[in-house]
Simulated scan of single mutants.
Amino acid sequence: MFPSNKKGLLIAGTALATLCGAGAANSEEMVALLLPENVNPRWEQQDAAAFVSTMKEIAPGVKVEVFNANNDTSAQQRQAEQALTQGAKVLVVIPIDGESSAIIADTAAEEGVPTLAYDRMINSANTSFWIQADMFATGAAQAQHVVDNTGAGDTLVLLRGSPTDPNAGVIADGQMSVLQPLFDSGERVMGYANWTPGWDPAIARRSMDQALTQLSNNVQGVVSSNDGNAGAAIAAMEEQGMAGTVPVSGLDCTVQAQQLMLLGKQTQCGWRPLHEMAAAAAEVTVRLLKGEDYADLATETVQNGVGADVAFVPVDSYSAVGAEGVAYVIENDPSITRDMVCQGEAAATDFCK
């Protein structure tokens, strides 16, 4: 896990900003952070904000340009080209599509600019660095939670992630490592499974509505790959009077997810220290700008989808369950406070009183 020994990682202001100032770094230097979409609030509110904040702290003379492609792979490629035209010296990319984003890393390499894959792998020989948690283990933890809270013969719904996101497949593989033996033996029944293009909650909602219709509401567990899917599933079950009676997993531990957990409607979410992931990416970015080695930060090497060795910084993850899990996230995530979670219906829960 990347050491959390830096100070000042609290989010300040909006992430979609350009920061510059005087400092040891060359004021002409600029780096670009390319976000995939704004469907999930974490990208702008947590990852980008923490990256910008850390860069301002450790390299105040470097401009940080933040782009959001809104789930458009062509737009993300254009934004990368724009950043390179503007003189970006490092690209930090959260790809929409791990395959098509290879052109971003390849184009940058032609100009001598390194590309860091943040959160999602870029399947290019020119990917310099990757930072992520063990998403296979995260998926396994989601599935295990639902299994632990269901019984023999119970029917499960699987709401998977976006088919173009490399992480979504790994999460699904982790889930199936737990579930497939149970499906094979009949201990659990796969009632419905579907992918969610763009991680769009509206698509997840349609999937859950279809599942409930096809199964005549005979659903005892929902293995959801992220919080957006979980919220969509809960909204669908709310209309059927089922919310709060069915275990539902998630990922990211958004404020909304934690509120739903306090209300007993979402029962689990996988949490990662996004501030540490962003800090690690910022530290590597600065090392690259200065021409310094970052081998001490990249503790492992992994192969990406094209067989290229990529320096890797793994981060820990935590399976948050119930009010205890919410308390853990609030204590360890500088972007989320108790006051933020204890709003609306959640304010009336015992946790918030």
Rank of each mutant, 00 (worst) to 15 (best):
W130P: 00
A22E: 14
V147S: 03
S177Y: 07
A279N: 11
A83V: 12
K265I: 11
L84Y: 09
C253M: 10
L212F: 11
T54N: 02
R272G: 09
A233F: 07
A281N: 04
A117T: 03
V170A: 01
A236S: 15
M277A: 15
Q343N: 08
M237R: 14
P247L: 03
M55W: 05
D252R: 13
A280S: 12
Q210D: 15
G23N: 01
C352D: 09
I103W: 02
G139L: 03
G305F: 00
T85Q: 15
Q343Y: 00
A243G: 00
S216Y: 13
T349R: 01
D350K: 13
L251P: 03
S101W: 02
L182K: 14
A232N: 04
V223R: 13
N38W: 02
D209Y: 11
A80C: 12
G13C: 06
D200P: 08
Q220I: 03
E187Y: 00
A22D: 15
S128I: 02
L159D: 02
A278Y: 07
S128M: 03
L116A: 12
M277C: 05
A125T: 13
T14R: 09
P197T: 04
E238G: 03
A311P: 05
D293Q: 08
T138C: 10
E331M: 10
N71Q: 06
R188G: 05
Y294E: 04
V170D: 00
V147G: 10
S27K: 15
V189S: 05
E345D: 10
D252G: 13
P163Y: 00
Q210Y: 01
G305R: 05
K63Y: 01
P166V: 08
N70W: 01
G112T: 12
H145N: 14
P201H: 09
W271Y: 15
V310A: 04
R78W: 08
M261V: 11
V302P: 00
A348E: 07
W130S: 00
Q45T: 12
D209S: 13
G98F: 00
G244Y: 07
F2K: 04
V52R: 09
Q240D: 12
P36D: 07
D47S: 05
V255C: 05
N149L: 01
Q214A: 14
V219S: 12
A48P: 04
E29A: 13
S128K: 08
S100W: 01
T85I: 11
A140R: 06
L33W: 01
G23M: 10
S100T: 12
N26A: 12
G174S: 01
Q256K: 11
D339C: 03
L297D: 02
M242Y: 08
A257W: 07
L156M: 05
M176W: 05
Y192M: 09
D309F: 07
L260C: 02
M30C: 10
A75V: 14
E239V: 14
N40Q: 06
T150H: 01
G305W: 01
A348H: 00
S224V: 02
R272V: 13
M55K: 09
L263K: 00
W195E: 01
Q210A: 12
T196I: 04
T115E: 06
G325I: 08
E331Q: 15
D148G: 13
A202R: 12
F312C: 04
A295V: 06
W271P: 06
A235N: 14
A202Q: 07
T18M: 06
S53Q: 14
L262S: 05
E29F: 10
